[in-house]
């Protein structure tokens, strides 16, 4: 793979891999956060401020590239920026914990309640993201890939209706559920386009039809067509993110026209590659809680190699890493990729 390819910048490498084109080596990619409390200290950009102030957001995100050696910078650490702009109640937490939506205090009950505010992309918590992307693009030019994030309507359904009410609605009334998704999708598209215009090279689209709650048939019924629409309307490569065991829906995901699927360690690399083939790139899938958080660099390296040997196009953590993850474990990911390519050259 790597022999005949001239040396690439990180950005070129990531974009090529998203398009399943030849690369000089497998890119190391984080479609979700790699922020840690130690990196927050290093650049004096702690949570929760780094989720709300663009300069801090950009500074903390850049450590993924400057300190860890990843080929991407992903400044949208949380999954709540647009939910805050929509009006959800947010628990901003403190430095060592994630901000979350208070989903037990939902803001909507029916499809008629859904109103995407006109200031969705100029609200301080969404503008923070677009401003951070602009800062990063100005600072790093074309050398590194900048990845944004816009939440899909299924995730927004959890945030705005509450997890249980939204799932019950999907069981009781598919028509109304589709109506809700159709109305919420505009927030996904608008925030995605805003980040593309700010300079993002690609965008992560988490839509938590997760393996533990939603079946593959559900994905096909409710989300596949919406995801096809996102791929058509958002003008930069989309990396779909769904946690959990998802092999039962990878066939449908591969049909969406999205560029990549960020997949969980509950799916084996080889079995996942066998399903998606060359229709969509895979990104992942180093385990967070058991490996990156709890074990050492040797165990991290073993999982990286399993992905490389399966032909996974972009390697990285499976999801947003725990904030207490050790730096040496994260640095083991790009180091292992480089060593592996040297050994096969």
């Amino acid at each position: 793979m790597a022999d005949a390819i001239k040396a690439m910048t990180s950005r070129e490498r990531v974009l090529a891999a998203l398009n399943r084109e030849p690369v000089d080596r497998t890119p190391v990619c984080n479609p979700t956060s790699v922020a840690t409390v130690e990196l927050m200290d290093l650049v004096d950009a702690p949570f929760p401020q780094a989720n709300r102030e663009p300069e801090l957001m950009a500074r903390l995100a850049a450590t993924g590239y400057t300190e860890l050696g990843f080929d991407t910078i992903m400044p949208v650490f949380s999954i709540i920026q647009e939910s805050s702009a929509i009006g959800c109640k947010i628990q901003w937490e403190q430095k060592d914990n994630w901000p979350t939506v208070k989903m037990r205090e939902p803001i909507w009950e029916t499809a008629d309640d859904i109103k995407i505010p006109a200031d969705l992309c100029t609200h301080p918590d969404t503008k923070c993201v677009t401003e951070a992307i602009k800062i990063l693009r100005k600072e790093y030019g074309d050398e590194v890939a900048i990845i944004g994030k816009t939440m899909g309507p299924w995730s927004m359904g959890y945030h705005c209706f509450g997890v249980e009410p939204f799932l019950l609605l999907s069981l009781d009334d598919p028509g109304k559920t589709k109506l809700c998704l159709d109305r919420m999708k505009e927030a996904t598209v608008d925030f995605g386009i805003a980040q593309a215009e700010a300079g993002a090279d690609a965008i992560t689209l988490p839509d938590h039809a997760t393996g533990d709650l939603v079946s593959g048939e559900y994905y096909e019924r409710y989300l596949r067509d919406l995801h096809i629409e996102f791929a058509e309307r958002i003008p930069i490569p989309i990396i779909l993110h769904i946690c959990g065991r998802t092999v039962d829906r990878m066939e449908y995901i591969a049909q969406t026209g999205m560029h990549a699927f960020h997949y969980d360690s509950k799916n084996k690399p080889a079995e996942s590659m066998a399903i998606v083939g060359d229709r969509i790139s895979l990104v992942g899938n180093i385990n967070n809680p058991e490996t990156l958080f709890s074990k050492g660099p040797e165990e991290v390296s073993a999982e990286v190699r399993e992905n490389l040997e399966a032909g996974v196009q972009l390697v990285g953590p499976e999801c947003a890493i725990p904030l207490q993850t050790a730096v040496e474990n994260l640095k083991a990911i790009p180091q292992t990729v480089r060593d592996w390519h040297k050994n096969i050259a």
């Binding site: 956060s33 409390v37 999954i79 060592d96 914990n97 994630w98 979350t100 939506v101 208070k102 989903m103 037990r104 995730s155 959890y158 945030h159 997890v163 938590h208 997760t210 533990d212 709650l213 946690c243 959990g244 967070n288 809680p289 958080f293 999801c319 947003a320 725990p322 904030l323 207490q324």
Partner: peptide, 14 residues
């Protein structure tokens, strides 16, 4: 203390 900062899936959040 060690488990703080581990992001739960939306289905596990409150």
């Amino acid at each position: 203390a060690a488990s703080r900062g581990v992001l739960a899936a939306p289905s596990q959040q409150e």
